[in-house]
Design a protein around this nucleic acid. Sequence first.
DNA 1: TTGAAAGCGCTAACAT
DNA 2: ATGTTAGCGCTTTCAA
Lengths: 350, 350
Amino acid sequence: MTDVTLREVARASGCSVATVSRVLAGTRPVGAETARKVREAAEKLGYRPNQVARALRSRSTGTVGLVLPQITNPFFPSLVREVEHALHAEGRAVLLADCDDDPEVEAARIADLLDRQVDALLIIAVDERQSRDAVAKAAAHVPLVLLDRGCGPGIADLVTTDNATGMALVLDHLVSTGRRRICFVGAAGTGSAAVERLAAYEAETKALGLHGFGPVELGDFSLEWGRAAVDRILPSRPDAVVCANDLIAIGALQRLRQLGVDVPGDIAVTGFDDIPMADLADPALTTVRQPVRALAAEAVHLLGHRLAGQNDGPRRLVRLAPELVVRASSAPRASSAEDTRSTRTPEVEQ
Amino acid sequence: MTDVTLREVARASGCSVATVSRVLAGTRPVGAETARKVREAAEKLGYRPNQVARALRSRSTGTVGLVLPQITNPFFPSLVREVEHALHAEGRAVLLADCDDDPEVEAARIADLLDRQVDALLIIAVDERQSRDAVAKAAAHVPLVLLDRGCGPGIADLVTTDNATGMALVLDHLVSTGRRRICFVGAAGTGSAAVERLAAYEAETKALGLHGFGPVELGDFSLEWGRAAVDRILPSRPDAVVCANDLIAIGALQRLRQLGVDVPGDIAVTGFDDIPMADLADPALTTVRQPVRALAAEAVHLLGHRLAGQNDGPRRLVRLAPELVVRASSAPRASSAEDTRSTRTPEVEQ
DNA sequence: TTGAAAGCGCTAACAT
DNA sequence: ATGTTAGCGCTTTCAA
């Protein structure tokens, strides 16, 4: 299977390599008849342009590096899928780098991707602080968009979910279905999801006049923490527990069932993210669905923008509004009040 | 951020580009003192080799294409992770292609990866038959290893789980814990998992003298089918239902709970794959854990072998034995018989 | 509109 | 052990 080169197509079609290149890449006007001959010859020989050679010469590989903490985190596969499809629709390919949740690995992978001359980077940072250096350095070389997780201000464009809106949706829903003794199980740490969801919870409960009731327990984004947290909050007899992500919520569901607490009869439980398991939990989990496709589309759009030459210009922060998915875990007990709050703005850009 | 080239390192270190190349690539012996100077200069200038140029010249991109049906299939993320790590450990990068479960998309992505000069392909085929052409064509160009799913005989190396062993482990376990009225919920179709797991179930039940009891229901590998199948098998009053994968099993668990059937009290349920949800189901699902890391390692090993020159030689089929993970969904009811069967061979190669 | 020629940054013969 | 040189396959000036 010897590969056919441009030169051979040129010979077969009786014109120069330059002309063949122009026809096939469509960069410059070419005579109709010549173009036909070239295409015919290319077709007949089964010519396929060598993207590596093209990349070397044109200084563009048509490749984007996608760097993420851990593909096994259940929230990521759908995001990867959407990013991959969006990029492929633009003719780009995805170099995948899984960082094993380790900032040092992340730095190494980013460096490797740059060596491979990716045109741009799409990064879901491992850690708000520890990833910062590597990300900032990379951003100096290629267009770079952060996805899902912030990494300090002004480093690069960031596309993420509007956590505040998500929390507001949850709390509105709980209050409008008669819950009042609400508490929160979140994550400690400096990650944007942990910080923003907690802050939003506190701001919103205050706004709703619920402040001062429930315990706020902070651990990590894990099932185990969800289980453990239940034992901590139960003594205060809540009627709803808002969890900072689905894993925590599913852990909470498990422990509540084990203790014989009825969900949603005694306590409503809500999550955040809408990972595939949320729908399979028993009872199925009410949660906030991140706008995965839109996040991917927006991130890819921003990359395109930067790639199209505007790699200066101010950094953008794009927050996309999530959507509340009401399932059994927050079904009203008996009578339900109506929802009195207005809808949130769907998108904020600043 | 102007990139430093080999030429500049050569000038700075006072020797030729060839010498610098040899030092940095380690291809040929170089004088110790010269090497030191070169490395020093490279370090000082922050030189990073341009992998695209290197690839063009050396005809090797150090890149492997990973083609899969759908990254959102819950069995794949862990496989992707292990493959990615195994390849990275060899200094290779992964170009990811998600095919959206569409063989036409798959063919297009494979072609694109070949245009990008991947050194090799690792493919989880979308469909046993419909993927065959594209896979065979690609195998003529680069080393290619199939993972998880067969694609017809003799097309390429294949690394997969030993479904027969898995089924035997399940049935041995059920029988040794006193189950006798066993039935099977599987998938129709020609995929190797569907076919092999069904065949293994039938062979093993026959071997165990259980043949002739239970219904065998075939649908697809989905939750919905698992739910629906329960209604079909319940009339025959089974005491165990063996499912061809975890999604089916989880669907079955959901429906059984809905119907008030006690698992494992009345009926034991088992799955296959050990996706993350299996552990979170309620009751937690007894299942067959695919040897994900070993599958990835073996596939990468085989690729290495083919890349190292032996791209002729017979196609290999490597089957790796899975492991039974006993959880609550198959706990014995009262008294349990002991396991009388011998252990299976851990690996078969043919 | 087309062709000739000069590289992109690197590696691999071939010399020395 | 090191330097010189010729490309890898393509795009892109620069001329015609």
